[in-house]
């Protein structure tokens, strides 16, 4: 089975080698057409953030910052408490991912081993189908009752709605691929369920923990609606802080672009560093047939 994909690859490789010049041009035209929208939007964001305000509202537009200036970034840091919002985002996303892993990884194991994957999968699918906003109404009322509106704790709890289903979903797939015979052998030798989970199954499923953690991090970091509704002035996460900038500084394009870039930079860095794991998690582990 392991040699199959490479056989497909080499066969495609052979076809590429044989392909005519016209076919090769068609391939590259396709690649450029598909990749350029991403490149253009990200480059334009960078360009806006590095230009002076005069160049930003010039017509025709100035494409290459000349000379590039960091003035917009300085302004973002001076006028906003970006570091505080960044720290809030770290706390909320970090907390939600950590708790998500602590409850989600064992849950994925239990579900995979007790063969109740179908029922759990349906529950997780329902969780994915439901708009996040609909959880927010009852949770908002609950937090109001508990006096927790505007706290980091409330945000961490709501972000569990995002992280737990992703992690459980990914972990079920990985634990199902860990052969059960290894654990049975350990148990006959007297290991407890907990020990066979901790010392055998978990180390073998470690790539799943990485993939699940990364995906949960990305989608939790990107979420902004929970923070818009629940956060107070001092507990906003980065995305909702930038959303608030929009209403007050609609015309200052440079700082707005700089702030947008700062918000999304951590996620883009993670994507570049972990692209192999992300591709594996989204194309195979997370979405297997079933």
């Amino acid at each position: 089975m392991a040699s199959r994909p490479s056989a497909v690859q080499s066969m495609y490789g052979a076809r590429v080698g044989k392909r005519s010049r016209g076919g090769r041009i068609a391939l590259w035209v396709s690649v450029i057409f598909l990749v350029s929208p991403a490149v253009l939007v990200f480059l334009w964001m960078l360009s806006l953030s590095l230009k002076t305000e005069i160049d930003n509202i010039a017509y025709p537009p100035v494409f290459i910052p000349n000379p590039p200036t960091l003035a917009s970034y300085v302004e973002v840091f001076q006028k906003n408490r970006i570091l505080l919002y960044f720290w809030n985002s770290v706390l909320v996303t970090g907390g939600a991912v950590l708790i998500g892993l602590m409850v989600g990884v064992p849950a994925g194991y239990g579900i995979a081993r007790s063969k109740s994957g179908k029922a759990a999968a349906v529950l997780i699918l329902v969780a994915r189908m439901t708009p996040a906003l609909s959880y927010l109404i009852p949770l908002f009322l609950l937090f109001q009752l508990l006096g927790m509106v505007g706290t980091i704790g409330a945000l961490v709890v709501t972000h569990l709605v995002i992280t737990v289903p992703i992690i459980v979903w990914v972990m079920i797939g990985y634990f199902e691929n860990v052969p059960v015979e290894l654990e049975e052998a350990a148990r006959i030798d007297g290991a407890s369920v907990w020990r066979s989970f901790w010392h055998i199954a978990l180390p073998l499923a470690r790539p799943g923990v990485v993939v699940g953690g990364i995906l949960a991090f990305i989608f939790s970091w990107n979420n902004f609606i929970f923070s818009v509704v629940l956060a107070g002035k001092n507990t906003r996460t980065l995305p909702s802080a930038v959303y608030n900038m929009l209403t007050f500084e609609q015309l200052a394009w440079g700082p707005l672009a700089a702030a947008a870039l700062l918000v999304t930079l951590p996620v883009l860095l993670v994507t570049v560093i972990a692209q192999r794991e992300i591709v594996a998690g989204l194309s195979a582990g997370g979405l297997k047939d079933g």
Binding site: L34, V35, P37, A38, V41, F42, M45, I218, W221, N222, F224, L238, P239, S240, V242, Y243, A259, A260, L261, V263, T264, V267, L268, V270, T271, V272, Q275, I278, V279
Partner: peptide, 12 residues
């Protein structure tokens, strides 16, 4: 090509 789906929607 994959980066847009990871980028923060609010920022983009």
């Amino acid at each position: 090509f994959v980066m847009p789906m990871m980028a923060t929607p609010v920022a983009i």
